[in-house]
Every structure is written in structure tokens, then in C-alpha cells.
Design a binder for these strands. Structure first.
Lengths: 152, 152
DNA sequence: CTAATTTGGTTTCATATGTAACAATCGAAT
DNA sequence: ATTCGATTGTTACATATGAAACCAAATTAG
């Protein structure tokens, strides 16, 4: 007897759905941190975080490290530049390239937000429990390892 | 000595990021199924899947079951109605309410897509490995259980 | 060397989204 | 019965997004 005749698909147990739902739940909560504390959008936060982590980078590299579309990066960089949180420096040998770097102000805000981010993650680990958190992390790593080779 | 002085936050190991990234990777792949095979958007697919699973529902309930904003549901229902994949029936006692139900055509397409969805998930389980898949599922369940009480 | 191609990044345009305002209806309170 | 508030669903508006066109600069091909 085929179970699927009655319920071809249970959405609440279907991984693409549960994964997307969990991501939204976590994302929504985490967003309050960079939105409320700094008025940043998600692309802006990711750009800040990537530059904070890696130091000087080009826009293309920011996109690669943070999995963002180049138009998102472009707009986020503009916005952070207007805030004076980052500065551009055109490459001397290749004038298409711009090296992007956080200003002192940007660096300061990055550290502050990074601390809140770590606290958020710690709270999440606490809420989920050490074991579930570790399982989730391992599962996500597996996804990244298997599907993450896509350029985009 | 404080490790965070050098790298306040490693994005590739930060759960809100890895979760969001994994969701996008899986979502992008799964989307090809309902897009290529039926020309559906994600809200349309979710609406179809929810009605297919639960039978007759109101728009509000579809939103609750599929975690979609009511405007998304409203637009998806319109579109599916135009395709003649669902029909509306106004409640006799409360004329604000519309009972939504798949047509035979809608049902047929739902079953077809549901089968592809199950195959997709099976392939994913295969790719990730039984163990990682199970860990991921449990981790996601924990997230849902702890954070899923938000209405939205 | 010049033309064609590629690359880094921005802008344009069409689409998708959510907030808020809205219309219609219902239920409760007076 | 009438008014007020809540609920169901749609629409209008402003914003976010990505595909594609685009510009400028560099590289490759002929």
C-alpha cells in the first residue's frame, strides 16, 4: 500500500521547506541586530562583515566570500562609503579594480556588531542545545560541501 | 589572549550565514523543478503544495501552513485560479471567507510535482549521506521548535 | 598596432516583496 | 438597531532584487 496516495508530500517534513523556514526564522531575529543597532540592510551587514574579516578586498571578492550578487555588493559598498565606513582606492596597475577597506569608524562598528553577532550565536546554541546546534552545523557543512561549488 | 581580537567573526562558520547560504543553495536547485516543469513561482508552488496536502483551505490558513505573507498567498491564488488549478467557493455563513480547493487539473499537477519533489529530497539524502541528512533534519526541527512560535 | 574579447563595476529596467491603506463583512457592545 | 472593532482578503505604493545592458579599462588575437 502506497503511503503517498494519501499525502504525496508533507511540507513540514520536506527538507527544502524546513530549511528555508529555519533560515527565515533565524535571519529575521538576527536582522534586528544590524538593523536596530546600526540601521544596516543585510547586504550592507554582509559587506561590512566580509571586509572586517578579510581586510582589503575588491567588490568581486566580497561577492565571492559572502555569496552576494554583484549588484548587491555594488549598492552596499556605495551606501557604506556614504556613511564613511569604508574607503575605495583604485588599483594603480589596473584601474578597473577598486580596493575596499574599512575606515576606523567602519572598523569600530564592525567590532561592535561582531560582538553582538557572537552573542547571538551563543544564545542560539544555548536555546537549541549543544547537541542540536552541533548537528545542525554539521548538516549545513555537508550541504555546503556538496552543493557549494556553484559559483552562484 | 583573546582570539576575537584578530577575527571578530568568521562568516563561513557563523550559523545565521551558513544556514541562509544552505537554504539558498537547496532552494535554487529545487526551484528548477517547479519552474521548469510547471512555470510556477515559489509562492505558487507552496500554495499548490499546501492545498494538495490539506485539501480545502482558506487563504489565511494557507499562509499559516506555508509561512507565507498574505499578499503572497493572495497573488498566488489569483494566478493558480487563472490557470484553473484551483477554484474558490465563498462560505455561505461568512462571506468574507473563501474556501480554496484544487481542481482536477490542479490535483494532477500537484501529484506530478510532489513526486518530483520526493525524488529531489531522496537525491539530496543520497548526496549528503544518510547521517548528515538526519542530523540536518533534527537540527532544523530544533530551530522550528524553539523559534517557530512566532506568528510571523 | 588595431580589433575583438574579457573583466570589474555601475546603472537600467522589469519583477517580487512587504507595509499600509482599503473594502467588505461579521460580531460584540450599547 | 447602530456603532465600534476585528477579520478576510485585495490593492496601492515604496523598496529590494536580479538579469541584462552598459561603460571603462585591460588583455588577447590576428
Amino acid at each position: 500500500m502506497d503511503q503517498t496516495e494519501k499525502t504525496p508530500l508533507a511540507l513540514e517534513a520536506f527538507l527544502p521547506y524546513t530549511l528555508s523556514r529555519a533560515a527565515e526564522l533565524v535571519s529575521r531575529r538576527f536582522a534586528t541586530i544590524y538593523k536596530d543597532h546600526a540601521g544596516l540592510t543585510r547586504p550592507e551587514w554582509r559587506t561590512l562583515a566580509t571586509l572586517g574579516q578579510y581586510g582589503t578586498l575588491t567588490a568581486t571578492l566580497i561577492g565571492a566570500h559572502s555569496s552576494m550578487h554583484k549588484t548587491k555588493v555594488s549598492r552596499a559598498v556605495q551606501s557604506l562609503e556614504e556613511r564613511k565606513w569604508l574607503k575605495r582606492r583604485t588599483d594603480e596597475n589596473d584601474r578597473r579594480i577598486e580596493h575596499l577597506e574599512l575606515t576606523r569608524e567602519g572598523e569600530r562598528n564592525y567590532r561592535k556588531l561582531a560582538e553582538l553577532a557572537r552573542a547571538f550565536e551563543a544564545g542560539l546554541k544555548d536555546t537549541l542545545g549543544e547537541k542540536s546546534f552541533a548537528e545542525l552545523s554539521r548538516g549545513l557543512d555537508a550541504v555546503e560541501k556538496q552543493l557549494g561549488t556553484d559559483v552562484f
